[in-house]
């Protein structure tokens, strides 16, 4: 079967327009803007080299954000994979109500990160929450929400993200027969890991309501930093530069992913 040049244009044009216009062009313009002092409302644009990156990297708020997201990724991604795999393993083979289990266990992922933040804000809170309800029954005093505690805020955020994302891993693993040997699962696990790393490095809405990045800098993430610089502090160049650092992180992980995915094919 030979696709003609005209066929190819018809086939590739719609997605090419969407991806170029809405993802690639903005990403490239962002990279260019991060090397200048460009801002949408500036009168003139001057090249500024790597100054924006130097400013971002020396900002203690950004380094705190990088540290948080590194912890988040290194803790949450393996746990999401492990728990997701464990649940899929429990659902392997013939079991009563397999499809019902599957739909029920996907529910947390259907909750948007924002809604999840709203929900856990209350569930972890003192008067109406699930946490203090359980503690009350074993006779413990009421606790303030762990999202307000400088040491507990990040672990709490991680736990909430695992609650929301681990079910997705289960869902993605289930159609594959898990009884097959694990090496056959390798490409699938690699693909899932790639998605989870991207999700984790871009963490934004999951902390926006739950902690707002606080207390202090304990749960600030690079995406939150980037958003606040561009849209809050009107510091467009710093927003663009820090956003590109996130992109660079994901593209770096992408290089490793593509390398690993290829090494099996050869």
């Amino acid at each position: 079967m030979r696709l003609s040049r005209r066929d190819r244009v018809i086939l590739f044009a719609p997605a090419a327009v969407l991806l170029t216009g809405w993802l690639i062009l903005p990403a490239v313009l962002g990279l260019l803007a991060s090397l200048t002092d460009y801002s949408p409302f500036a009168q003139a644009v001057h090249l500024s080299g790597l100054t924006n990156y130097a400013t971002v990297l020396s900002d203690h708020l950004f380094t705190a954000a990088v540290r948080n997201v590194a912890v988040l990724t290194m803790v949450a991604v393996p746990l999401e994979l492990a728990i997701g795999f464990g649940l899929a393993y429990l659902l392997r083979g013939p079991i009563w109500g397999r499809r019902l289990w599957r739909v029920l266990l996907l529910l947390p992922w259907l909750v948007s990160p924002i809604a999840s933040g709203v929900m856990w804000h209350f569930l972890l809170g003192p008067t109406r929450g699930i946490l203090n309800f359980a503690l009350g029954w074993i006779g413990r005093p009421e606790l303030a929400s762990p999202t307000g505690d400088i040491r507990l805020a990040l672990p709490t955020t991680i736990a909430v993200e695992i609650w929301r994302v681990a079910p997705l891993v289960t869902f993605l693993l289930l159609p594959t027969a898990l009884d097959v040997v694990v090496p056959a699962l390798r490409p699938l696990l690699l693909a899932i890991t790639m998605l989870l790393i991207g999700l984790s490095l871009g963490t934004f809405d999951a902390v926006l309501i739950l902690t707002g990045g606080g207390p202090g800098t304990s749960t600030v993430t690079p995406a939150l930093y980037s958003y606040n610089q561009a849209f809050g502090a009107n510091n467009w160049p710093l927003g663009a530069a820090s956003a590109w650092l996130i992109a660079a992180g994901v593209l770096g992980a992408g290089l490793v992913y593509v390398g690993l995915a290829r090494s099996r094919a050869s």
């Binding site: 991806l19 809405w22 993802l23 903005p26 990403a27 313009l29 962002g30 803007a33 790639m194 998605l195 790393i197 991207g198 999700l199 490095l201 871009g202 934004f204 690079p222 995406a223 980037s226 958003y227 561009a230 849209f231 467009w236 927003g239 663009a240 956003a243 590109w244 996130i246 992109a247 994901v250 593209l251 992980a253 992408g254 992913y257 593509v258």
Partner: peptide, 13 residues
């Protein structure tokens, strides 16, 4: 990899 790219990477521009 493109699917994994966080929206923050391009939404500002």
């Amino acid at each position: 990899v493109l699917a994994s790219l966080p929206a923050m990477a391009y939404v500002i521009p």
